[in-house]
Amino acid sequence: MGEALAALRRERGLSQAEAGQRIGMTSQGWGLYEAGRRPGLFRPDVQRRLTGALDATPEALALHTPGAPPASSEPLAVKDVSARGRAFAAAPRLTRRLRLETDELAPWAAAGTVLEYVVGRWPRRGQGCVIQLDDGAFRVRLYDHADDVEVVVGGAGGLDRSERIPRAQVRSVSAITARLDEE
């Protein structure tokens, strides 16, 4: 891949110093990527940064890589993929509803309130969330924060009380997107 980067740079008529200067890098730093002695050349973000300095794309870099398929003037036949510009249409999110059985989140939401949540959408701080535990139980809380050890939420027996749920017990966390007083 380093050879492909060097080939792209030479095609553009740039020295290592000129290419590096475009992204705030020294010629030595650029040379390490071309020599394959600097890790990260296979990372997409690094490829975008380096090829951007050459007014190229990571796809152009891949086509210059030894063993890459030859460029063709005919478009590839691709089925069942649609795109809008460079962004692909995301898969539809699954929306579900859940009726609160208790008043422990009052005044945010009282018993009988129907909550609509999006499975797989992570909540922001202070947003309601539905947490499904490994045992199949659901907890409705106000999201605070999470790390790799635990999920911290509020609303357990009062809005100002926090609860720490071990991450190992959490199957999913989903953001609440609507509160419906009547269904």
Rank of each mutant, 00 (worst) to 15 (best):
D45V: 06
L63T: 12
R97S: 15
G67C: 02
Q21V: 03
E34H: 02
E18K: 01
A106D: 09
V140P: 15
A56L: 06
G24H: 00
D103S: 09
A87R: 12
Y117V: 07
L94K: 13
T26V: 01
R124A: 14
V46F: 01
R38L: 03
L105K: 14
R93I: 13
L76G: 15
G31A: 14
Y143R: 14
P107M: 11
T57W: 09
G136M: 00
E116A: 12
G24C: 00
S73F: 08
A77S: 09
D134Y: 01
Q47H: 03
R99L: 06
P39K: 12
F138T: 10
F138K: 06
R22T: 03
A110G: 06
F42S: 15
P75H: 09
E104A: 12
Q28H: 02
L105C: 11
E104Q: 14
G31M: 07
L98P: 06
P75E: 07
M25V: 00
E11C: 07
V119I: 02
L115Y: 09
D147C: 03
A87D: 07
R86L: 04
W108C: 14
L41H: 02
R93P: 08
R97M: 07
S72W: 01
G112I: 01
P44D: 07
A109W: 06
L63N: 13
S82E: 05
P69W: 08
G128D: 09
A106Q: 07
R121I: 02
T51E: 04
A17F: 00
A62L: 11
T57M: 14
P58V: 04
R124I: 06
V140T: 10
R139Q: 13
A19D: 08
P107T: 12
L133E: 05
G136D: 01
R97W: 06
R38V: 03
R141D: 03
R84K: 13
T57S: 14
A71S: 13
Y117W: 00
D45P: 08
V78T: 10
D148C: 08
C129P: 12
A110S: 12
S72P: 05
F138A: 14
H64M: 11
P69M: 12
A60T: 10
G40Q: 06
F42M: 14
T26G: 02
A89Q: 07
V149D: 10
G112T: 02
K79H: 09
V151Y: 11
V114I: 08
W122E: 15
P92C: 02
V119C: 05
A109Y: 11
R139M: 12
P69K: 13
D148W: 15
V149W: 07
V130E: 07
G20Y: 04
L63S: 15
R97K: 08
R48W: 13
P66A: 13
E104N: 09
Q28K: 02
D148Q: 11
A53I: 00
L133Q: 08
L100N: 13
V140F: 11
A53F: 00
